[in-house]
Design a protein around this nucleic acid. Structure first.
Lengths: 356, 356
DNA sequence: CTGAAAGCGCTAACAT
DNA sequence: ATGTTAGCGCTTTCAG
């Protein structure tokens, strides 16, 4: 960059100021600047102010890459989400951010589109930046991903499910149990022709948590000697409204006497309700509908949606807490694995009308 | 960490393997390992395989912090979003990720909850990690944030609006024009009592883009000598369903003859429709509704929602393209600012029934 | 309270 | 095709 700036600014022409530029301007050593930047509270007030002034004047922003290389602390925690388009995952991120802020950890977010291959790709990227912990919203990983995670020498928290063989820590709930709760609610409600709309796995695109819910749902049906042939798979994750609309059409073709539907997500449940409206099928008089996730749209539609509720924000908070505990552990002694279940509960609203 | 591992592994006990560990195991210099890792294709095939084997054996993952400190290339681009809970912003992220992947840039995402202070905080964090470019979904920043951005010596792209005084590059559309389109559609439709549901700013929480839409809307009303007293502000960003439900109640109290409503987002528009259903107000027979954003839920409800459409995925792609062009520019010559307008269009659906 | 020396893990630039 | 040297910007450690 050819600049006409006077020679005295040669040291900072065209590049970002470094700690050395600040120290020169303030007339102190780089160490002193470093102490001021990190708020170490050991620097003389007047020196500190002089340094602060120099920092402001130069617009100095410390280089965390250099800092963490030296201190061996990157100061960030990685969160891997299946998708950005899900209010519940956002709630988790919020809970995490809040819980981590006081400890001055920065949260970095990546998403995988429910793809195992993409998860591995993102993990590789993230791990290369040396996060101090890693949070995964998924309990199913490629073999290579699992190996990476184990070799990373970093605390790993799997969230939003209860894996049978966790990598390390877990903050979640049982998706299997969620599905069973839905089935029991419908069976107890006296419904005779119970269907469900799930999504299908395809080519490495897997919504394992949704599948667990469906497995729980089917298992409970079987326990009560009910048929499970009315579970249809519609589209791939992320589940959305149209999955429900298309799914219920299929179900009604297959069983005109259908009287209740469990949708793997509130979003597809809303799709079910909307499609029913279009065909003059009354919810809940003709057909009862139950979803999962307690999304806002479910509370807003008419009738409001019966659903399964998980406190995802609390889940995020608990994850932050767990992380903080684990990270405060002496690095020489690995903290024992924590397994935390935040639970799931059924919220009865107008979209289900018991038959007895 | 007390370990019983044999002494020969002393060099890698309890810590991650470094490039030196790999080079020792493979019997080559660290440079050779570096070349293999970066796929520089200048290494002898047999040597390369030996190195690869060592890498696999040790589970070596390169340290990008160290690498980028040395190469002065961090390899990532930062995306700052107002909120994670917005399908359109997710679409932008997708478009960006896709467009950037070939060039091997990694996208790191942060969100601000529509808070200027939080934006500044996130920016500081992000900038400290030396992104090679920064993408902001907002065109309004705190003074300090603007200063940080200008001092960062990094390309800045503001997206999803058309700011009058851009920091540098822009890929967006006119929110002002979007609001005007909505107003014109309703005026042309022959509506007499036109209202709107906006959100209010509060305490540093600002949805500047939404406000621009409302300003455009009001301006167009005034142009046609229509009153603008039926624009109500309901809640703060992020806008959601309940904003619309509460907003339309207020509007109907204020003007029982209300015949059309523009909602700042499809989400609040859906809230309007749902609230109308609950009160026996027919949409569109009694009240017409128009939203913004063309969210999936708008296509799914009955009647489907008339809305303003922006191709956000394309916006993300164009942003990626712009970034790639700008970044390929010789670092010594700053690329000229690009201003790209992806446009906005009205999508007429069932929720608006013209009166003439 | 402040500073000097050494080095974090990697790559640019220059040998060979 | 491979290696050597130096140094990226910061912090740790130790000395004063």
């Amino acid at each position: 960059m050819t600049t006409r700036a006077p020679a005295r600014s040669r040291s900072r022409a065209g590049r970002r100021p470094t700690i050395g530029d600040v120290s020169r301007l303030a007339g102190v050593s780089r160490m002193t600047v470093s102490r001021v930047v990190r708020d170490l509270n050991v620097v003389n007030t007047r020196t500190r102010d002089r340094v602060r002034k120099a920092i402001a004047e130069l617009g100095y922003v410390p280089d965390l890459a250099a800092g963490s290389l030296s201190s061996r602390r990157s100061g960030f925690i990685a969160l891997v989400l299946p998708t950005l388009t899900n209010a519940n995952f956002s709630a988790v991120a919020h809970g995490l951010t809040d819980g981590l802020r006081a400890a001055d950890y920065h949260l970095l977010i990546a998403y995988t589109d429910y793809s195992l291959a993409e998860e591995e790709h993102q993990l590789r990227n993230l791990l290369a930046r040396r996060p101090e912990a890693i949070v995964l919203t998924s309990t199913m990983h490629s073999k290579a991903a699992t190996r990476l995670l184990r070799a990373a020498h970093v605390p790993v928290v799997e969230i939003a499910d209860l894996p049978p063989r966790p990598i390390e820590h877990v903050v979640g709930f049982s998706n299997h149990e969620a599905g069973r709760l839905a089935a029991r609610h419908l069976i107890d409600g006296g419904f005779q022709h119970i269907g469900a709309v799930a999504s299908s796995s395809d080519d490495g695109i897997v919504d394992h948590r949704g599948e667990e819910r469906m497995r729980g749902f089917e298992e409970e049906l079987r326990r009560h000697e009910r048929p499970t042939h009315l579970v249809v798979r519609q589209g791939t994750a992320p589940v959305s409204y149209d999955h429900g609309a298309a799914g219920v059409r299929t179900l009604l073709e297959r069983e005109p006497k259908l009287d209740a539907v469990f949708a793997v997500s509130d979003l597809s449940a809303v799709g079910v309700v909307m499609e029913c409206q279009r065909h003059g099928i009354r919810v809940p008089e003709d057909l009862s509908v139950i979803g999962f996730g307690d999304f806002e749209i479910g509370r807003e539609i008419n009738p409001p949606l019966t659903t399964l509720h998980v406190d995802f924000r609390a889940l995020g908070h608990r994850t932050a807490q767990t992380l903080l505990e684990v990270l405060s552990h002496d690095a020489t002694a690995k903290a024992p694995p924590r397994i935390i279940d935040v639970g799931v509960s059924l919220v009865a609203r107008g979209s289900v009308r018991p038959r007895r």
